[in-house]
Design a protein around this nucleic acid. Sequence first.
DNA 1: TATTGTTATACTCTATAACTATA
DNA 2: TATAGTTATAGAGTATAACAATA
Lengths: 165, 165
Amino acid sequence: MTAATHRIPHPKKHRELNAVDTLVQLSFLVQGILQRRAAEYDLSITQTRLLGILRDRTPTMNDLAKHLVLDKSSITGLIDRAERRGIVVRVPSTADRRSVRVRLTDEGRSLVSRVLAQFDSDISTLLASLSPPERATLSSLVSRVLVADATEHGVDLFATSDKQN
Amino acid sequence: MTAATHRIPHPKKHRELNAVDTLVQLSFLVQGILQRRAAEYDLSITQTRLLGILRDRTPTMNDLAKHLVLDKSSITGLIDRAERRGIVVRVPSTADRRSVRVRLTDEGRSLVSRVLAQFDSDISTLLASLSPPERATLSSLVSRVLVADATEHGVDLFATSDKQN
DNA sequence: TATTGTTATACTCTATAACTATA
DNA sequence: TATAGTTATAGAGTATAACAATA
């Protein structure tokens, strides 16, 4: 990889971009789009991921730490700020009195729906230059990469988890 | 988009992933890989991007702010920390005595080479499940997305910029 | 003893506003 | 006046280590 870590790459005229470079550049492009959009709602990427997780789960702090690959003390701060803002609440776990579950409030649910809908629209726009069959090809290739990685790391991409309490 | 903002997505069995979802997930995956790898060298993604830019440029603080899309005060801090660490130096600009150019030190150059080589290797590994022609297809489709976006925003992806002083 | 979560602390990253020094 | 950069300040995000409560 030569210059894929910055948006305006190598000072060489019309060089061929390999799969590695394009993927890295794309990841910066996509993250930039998401980050700017989230910021319009006063959300960071991490907060948005958090809300996305909470849409169909009521995980413990520990579950969140695992999903987001963050230290549990980082989750404490993340939830503190989200709770202060009224988009999530801590609820005591009934089964284990040490643990705490985190739930979206109605306001949080509404917020995450709006943000993720915007994300969808933003990335769809980004892909507008590809034809539907091209998008399908892209999607299929990327899916294979995602599945291979998940398998590699022993993660079931489609698992239903976080059994209640 | 339903669940692409978190690594372990929707609790539905084997749902079809569309191009938007896969792209968003992929961007998180790639950024995670880069971030963890950079961290091994005590670098953030931003520091690594900075070093990547400096490999073939000696930009002013202002140039850096534009490339990284950050406020100039953020660049001050970024360069302060990098300079303290001995990987970059500030050099006075001869033409305009207000401005400052930033240059890699030998140590910085060596560091960025090692990190970017690792990035390359990491992302190559990620793509190992695709055949060479599939990688070429992926690369070509992603390139078109990148070029379309750059054109949309009036950026010449292949421009040579930052004329010295 | 081990696990869950919080607190104390420290550092990076980022922005806004006010400032200095040039131009 | 306008631009280049720094400083002061504030807040988010992150981690490590020590701690309390519970298992």
